[in-house]
């Protein structure tokens, strides 16, 4: 009987994993994060937060219509988000593997990293060999950072070893490049699953590697809720093992106010050591303009029209 249970596969592995990491109550998570939204960030604190958020942006373009020209302009924006010299460059540009070498031409040798989604982004539905080849190619083209997707199908089937083995293989293929593991939270559906997948990933990645919410290609992206569940997993893992894993919410963060709220969550959950771009990133594009715009507002006291800022999606 015991043997039957042990061999029950899927359900047994879920039970074992959840027993070890503990459950999450979704209503409680929502109530916790609602408190972050009531924080009021003013003046110097606001400026500091806005600049910090800019420095954490992985400025992203992941479209079929991307061209070297589009990437070049993205890189210019990444290096200098605004003419104001007080505005820092972003953390990285994030592009498809075919665009890595174009991006590298523009930001190589600067503080701005080149990140590339790989592993058959966004679905991950390609043979492992193909996915690893894509990673190696991107790294060879100069990618500093690789954003991979986990095998959600294997996860939902309870094939946790498979999930972890694949991540391990990507870690190896990355070499010196930093890895960001996308859980694709919308496809995991529950906070319990998000917490479980976070632990699975953290077990096999390296200090300084990231776990990341989403590809930005599904219905639901980064939310304060799934950010909270993941940073609590990072905190528990760190306090348990001493290994500091970094975090990247991606998709859905469009306003400066949202970005500041995510940073408040980081400050109050993980503390000061995660308030920097090597431990926290925003996968986003349009948020950058709003961050810059709010900085200008803080400095001038006047609300700013969006078309003052380059490539503002909402310009009209």
């Amino acid at each position: 009987m015991v043997c039957d249970l042990m061999n029950a596969g899927q359900s047994a592995s879920f039970r074992k994993l959840f027993d070890e990491i503990g459950p999450v109550d979704s209503v409680g998570v929502e109530e916790r994060v609602a408190k972050y939204t009531t924080r009021s960030i003013k003046k110097a604190a606001k400026l500091w937060g806005l600049k910090m958020a800019i420095s954490m942006v992985d400025l992203t373009t992941l479209e079929g219509k991307d061209t070297p020209g589009k990437v070049a302009s993205l890189c210019r924006k990444a290096l200098r988000p605004h003419e104001d010299p007080g505005v820092p460059p972003v953390a990285a540009v994030c592009v498809y593997p075919s665009m890595v070498r174009h991006a590298k031409k523009h930001v190589g040798g600067t503080s701005v990293k080149v990140a590339s989604v790989a592993t058959a982004f966004p679905s991950g539905q390609a043979p492992l060999k193909t996915r690893l080849g894509e990673v190696r190619a991107a790294v060879a083209d100069g990618a500093d950072e690789i954003d991979m997707v986990i095998n959600r199908g294997a996860f939902l089937e309870g094939e946790f070893a498979e999930v972890q083995d694949e991540i391990s293989a990507v870690v190896e293929a990355c070499g010196a490049a930093t890895l960001k593991v996308i859980l694709e939270v919308s496809e995991l559906e529950t906070y319990d699953n998000i917490r479980a997948a976070s632990f699975l990933a953290m077990e096999v990645i390296r200090e300084g590697d990231f776990i990341k919410t989403s590809t930005g290609k599904t219905s639901l992206n980064a939310t304060l809720g799934n950010n909270q569940v993941m940073i609590e997993a990072i905190r528990d893992f760190y306090l348990d093992t001493g290994t500091a894993i970094a975090m990247k919410p991606a998709g859905g963060i469009r306003t400066a106010k949202q970005a500041l709220t995510f940073l408040i969550a980081v400050k109050e959950t993980l503390g000061d050591a995660w308030l920097n771009k090597s431990r926290y990133r925003f996968g986003a594009s349009s948020v950058l303009n709003d961050l810059v715009r709010q900085i200008e507002k803080e400095k001038t006291g006047a609300y700013q029209a969006p078309y003052y800022f380059s490539e503002a999606a909402e310009s009209y």
Binding site: R235, Y238, K267, D272
Partner: peptide, 11 residues
């Protein structure tokens, strides 16, 4: 341990 310090003080 976690550091809950004054890196980012709310005004």
């Amino acid at each position: 341990g976690l550091i809950f310090g004054d890196l980012w003080q709310y005004d």
